[in-house]
């Protein structure tokens, strides 16, 4: 148990310190790297409480895909160097009230979730499917997700789909005058369309533009 506790404290300290460094570091790319470190240590914590499926999904989705896109955007936008720290500059201190409101809302939500868990422990057992310790948590997660919460699951899938379509619609634009390759056109080209034999009369030349 001592080793367990030591590892727990190591990972949680890394998680908290890197979460602070995300906002405190001057370089935006460094912030993203600290965010990745934060994700990794949190997935380690997930694995430590025995939720290995969630931990691995956390690694695959957040670190393997989402953070790559973050890094992509930050590198492309060339906002690498921030001149001022957030707590020093005057322009960004305007955003502090909004930030405080949002963070307090998230904090209260967390209190509601954790509090409900604490004061009504039978909430966990309210599921219709019986869970036991014999099956792996991948199986038990699937059993709960696809029976009790199937509608919520489907709705969140629909929301994600709509968000994806929205992002595509907003960023997609058809530009005029761009030459695009069409594979079908290229393959279905025949000799008669491509090559033409012309008798060139001397001193006359040929018009080729039509």
């Amino acid at each position: 148990m001592i080793a367990h506790a030591i590892f727990f404290y190591i990972f949680s300290i890394i998680a908290i310190v890197s979460a602070i460094m995300v906002t405190a570091s001057k370089n935006t790319v460094h912030s993203v790297f600290f965010l990745i470190l934060d994700f990794i240590s949190i997935s380690c914590l997930f694995i430590m409480i025995g939720a290995e499926f969630l931990g691995m999904i956390m690694l695959i989705v957040y670190v393997g895909a989402v953070a790559v896109l973050f890094l992509f955007v930050v590198m492309m936008l060339n906002v690498a160097q921030q001149k001022n720290q957030w707590f020093l500059s005057k322009t960004s201190s305007r955003h502090i009230p909004i930030g405080l409101i949002i963070s307090s809302i998230i904090f209260f939500e967390l209190i509601i979730v954790v509090g409900g868990w604490k004061y009504k422990p039978d909430l966990i057992n309210s599921s219709n499917t019986s869970l036991n310790n014999e099956i792996s948590n991948t199986h038990s997660l699937g059993q709960v997700l696809y029976t009790d919460y199937i509608h919520i699951f489907q709705i969140s899938g629909m929301i994600l789909l709509i968000a994806m379509i929205g992002a595509i619609v907003l960023t997609f634009r058809q530009r005029e005058g761009v030459k695009k390759q069409s594979y079908i056109k290229q393959i279905s080209r025949e000799r008669s369309e491509g090559v033409e034999v012309i008798e060139v009369a001397s001193n006359k030349g040929v018009r080729i533009d039509d």
């Binding site: 290995e52 499926f53 691995m56 999904i57 690694l59 695959i60 670190v63 393997g64 895909a65 790559v68 792996s136 948590n137 991948t138």
Partner: peptide, 15 residues
């Protein structure tokens, strides 16, 4: 238990 996910996660970190 989640061996295949582990390999997938590690190979996606490789980037």
């Amino acid at each position: 238990n989640v061996g295949i996910l582990y390999i997938f996660a590690v190979s996606s970190l490789g980037v």
